[in-house]
Simulated assay, not measured.
Amino acid sequence: MSSNSNNQVYPVLWREQSPATPLQGHVLLIDQTRLPNEYTVVEINRYEDMARAIETMIVRGAPAIGVAAAYGVYLGARDIQTSDRSEFLAQLEPVAERLRATRPTAVNLFWAIDRMVKTARQTLGSVDHLKQTLLDTAKAINADDIQTCHQIGDHGLKALPTNPKKLRVLTHCNAGALATAGYGTALGVVRSAWRDGRLERVYADETRPRLQGAKLTAWECVQEGIPVTVITDNMAAHCMQRGMIDAVVVGADRIAANGDAANKIGTYSVALVAKAHNIPFFVAAPLSTIDFAIADGSEIPIEERNPSEIYTVGETILCPAGAEFYNPAFDVTPAALISAIITEYGAIAPAQLREQLADKQAG
């Protein structure tokens, strides 16, 4: 299934049907819309179903979306019925376009799809060989992301303050195992700190309007016995003022070349308050989240979601008829508010991203 006896969570998994028919497997996704009350695994066999799973947030978090999209490209490729390579490549492009259209902000989605399409174009041989290569590439993206998250966690541990010896860390949204292929980015740092006895407690912003902190971050921490306290988003400043927070660690869905970082709506507010209280604010994300093609955060597209996320909780309507709503899913935190961006290559000052990492991404 999507977790093991050590309570490690893997939200995206490839399940092989049998060794004799390796191409005929399927993808397993933890349905994050049902957590924390119900642990459900969804089986995905078609690329259109994967696209809908991404759109409806069954799978979410930039790295996890990238892994899911890679498998989605393969599922679409598997269903193409032709032995002609040129025709196969032509039919693969609409599959890629459908998956690209699912979520506009998370750059990992586009990175993974582009890698899959590039692999298809560069692979010679029969169409069956090409399909196998695409599956192998999706599996590699999956495995690489887990390894990357462990590296981010360990680099983040080194970047955290050394005083006090046991830290109280604030998070916003979910950047844990559920948001990646496993272990997590921001929660990867938390996990590494917990493993090494450096963590006292996680304070998890609830993260309105979809409550990813309350539902997902808290769920992950409870699974592993990590002390966690859920607070409403508007309590973060109060907690910092009272000396309850030693560091903030968040994830990102896209980072511009200058270090501006897009993350779940409300992150910018947390960064401003952290700056006011002289509390270090870290962004943890893989290299694939950095978009060197855009100069700064003003160029990051911000997804706007259905306003019903604001005015309803379950079947309960919270707001009066006639009110209007604005529901951006992300905001952009300026680089000047970020202490360091923690990647698999280390904790790097935002101004040094291009100098230290651009050549690694190109490679």
Rank of each mutant, 00 (worst) to 15 (best):
L13C: 10
R78L: 12
E38K: 13
I44Y: 00
G66M: 13
M50A: 07
D31A: 02
D84T: 06
S18L: 03
I44F: 02
W14S: 13
V41H: 05
Y39C: 03
V73G: 12
G25V: 14
P22S: 15
A69R: 09
Q17P: 03
R85H: 08
N45V: 15
V42D: 14
S83W: 00
G25S: 11
D79E: 14
T82I: 12
E55L: 08
E38W: 08
L23M: 13
M57N: 12
E38C: 08
D49S: 13
Y74R: 00
A53V: 06
A69C: 13
A68V: 01
A64F: 04
I80R: 04
V59Q: 03
Y47W: 03
Q24E: 15
T82P: 14
L35M: 00
E16M: 07
T21P: 00
A51E: 03
P19E: 10
A62G: 09
L75G: 07
P19L: 06
T33Q: 11
L75M: 12
A77I: 07
A77F: 09
F88P: 06
S83P: 06
L28I: 05
H26M: 09
L35A: 02
P22G: 15
V12C: 10
T33M: 12
D31I: 04
Q81I: 07
L28A: 15
A64L: 07
E38P: 00
A69I: 02
A77P: 13
Y39W: 05
D31M: 01
I54R: 06
S18N: 08
I30Y: 10
E38Y: 10
Y71G: 11
A20S: 15
A20P: 06
T40W: 04
Q24C: 11
G25A: 11
T56F: 04
Y71S: 13
Q81H: 09
D49E: 14
Y39F: 14
V59L: 01
T82K: 08
R52I: 11
L28W: 09
N45F: 08
S83A: 14
G72H: 05
Q24I: 08
A20C: 14
A68R: 00
G76Q: 04
L23W: 05
L35G: 01
R85Y: 06
Q81K: 12
L29V: 07
D79A: 14
I58Y: 03
L75Q: 09
Y71D: 09
V12P: 02
L23C: 09
L29K: 10
D79G: 12
A70G: 10
P63G: 00
W14N: 13
Q24R: 09
D79S: 14
T40M: 04
Q81C: 11
E55M: 08
S18E: 07
Y74S: 02
R78C: 05
S83L: 11
D49N: 10
E48T: 15
R34M: 05
G76R: 04
N45M: 10
P63C: 00
R46K: 10
A70P: 01
S86G: 11
G66E: 14
R46P: 01
S86F: 08
A68M: 02
L89E: 07
I54L: 13
